[in-house]
Nucleic acid binder design. Structure first.
Lengths: 216, 216
DNA sequence: CTCAATTATGAACGACGTACATTTGAAATC
DNA sequence: GATTTCAAATGTACGTCGTTCATAATTGAG
């Protein structure tokens, strides 16, 4: 067969991404192959390589969507919520909820890594950054007068923590503890952290000296 | 060739695990193959399958060691430190330090997942549990009179948070933020969280209702 | 209708995880 | 020391993977 004109390049790309997500959901990352994706959209493997340079690029495209979806989920979660603390809690709950509900896509996003030395994709970084900005916005009213850099540090810290709960929840690494209610964990983290934030007095953030030591 | 008696089964197993770790360090998870491991220990692939049922079992053996190493690192990090808060901070710093220094092995441990429906290995769970107990021990003096279940919840929460920082640090997902000093992040998290813990008053941990909804 | 340009194909390649019949050599028996 | 025995190690084979590319099929322009 030659040119079929059934779908444009863009349509095929769209279909391929959607098919990848579906396979990911149904069979996990290990069940995903280029051939399955090609079959699912009614084309051959060779054709898939006219759409994506390689498998990594396809997965990157999927991750880009996932990042968008997370952003939207977080943004929606604070809609209509005025109280800053409630906003932060709602966002963290929404984040974990998303991770659990879309486990395979979420894991692909955070576990897939490019071959060594490959350039980190701008698009994904940008989206992670936007996500953190959302957190900063919710945090700002709770830290009146704090310099912007301090706000960023705090947002990064808190959200890394929330992310940690999500990681362990999604990968089932907390199963031994009997904890199946992750909302408790995230609420506890956010509540306690924010409480501590409001009670800082003379504690003074210590700027440590240990730098990231690249090894191994 | 037949029986060579150069190494016992146990020695070969040991060699295989060590070789796997070395390859992991040098080439990452994607560079790891059964053939490379076999070559590295001077045996053939077939022989490797007399030592490990399959690749997953080999990786599990590696992960078991990693878990032990983390445990030891955490235990050593609090040696000679009396003050509970300092203990907790030292442990979290040691945890992140370990993750950064042994990135590939650390990632393998937390990102490798068995095929769907496979039983979670007891040995690994046990080791994760022991690690959390270490955290609980450091936390206990800082929560006088707290019931054991609450202590466990708190330890899980805090350590999930530390883990989150570690994940993002190790996978380079925080690179955009200019943060290369992860000790700042973990100290900030621990300080603020513990401060909040000491100031709880009428806040009362809310027991949420959202359960883990298995989906996708 | 013809023909160049484009699009999709499918065969092929090397590498992978894994299985297993075959061969090798150490030890047991005589 | 020769022979037997049997575990240990080999190496070939199979199916699948990601990826490439010569080839065939289809389209739109002239």
């Amino acid at each position: 067969m030659g040119r079929r004109n059934l779908h444009t390049r863009e349509q095929q790309t769209e279909m391929a991404i959607a098919a990848t997500e579906l396979i990911l959901v149904r069979e996990g990352m290990q069940g995903l192959t280029m051939r399955k994706v090609a079959d699912a959209i009614g084309y051959t493997v060779g054709n898939l390589y006219l759409l994506f340079q390689n498998q990594d690029q396809l997965l990157l495209a999927v991750n880009e969507r996932t990042a968008d979806a997370i952003y939207v989920a977080l943004r929606d979660s604070v809609e209509g919520i005025a109280e800053p603390r409630a906003q932060t809690k709602a966002m963290s709950a929404a984040y974990i909820e998303f991770g659990l509900r879309h486990a395979s896509r979420w894991r692909l996003m955070f576990e897939h890594s490019l071959p060594v030395g490959a350039a980190r994709p701008r698009a994904i970084e940008l989206r992670i950054r936007r996500m953190f900005e959302l957190v900063e916005n919710g945090l700002r009213p709770q830290m009146p007068g704090a310099p912007e850099e301090r706000l960023r540090l705090t947002a990064t810290t808190l959200w890394s923590g929330v992310h940690g709960i999500c990681v362990l929840a999604v990968t089932g690494k907390l199963r031994w503890s009997g904890t199946d209610n992750f909302r408790d964990l995230s609420d506890h983290l956010v509540d306690t952290f924010l409480l501590g934030l409001g009670n800082e007095r003379g504690t003074g953030i210590k700027r440590g000296t240990a730098r990231a030591s690249a090894a191994e």
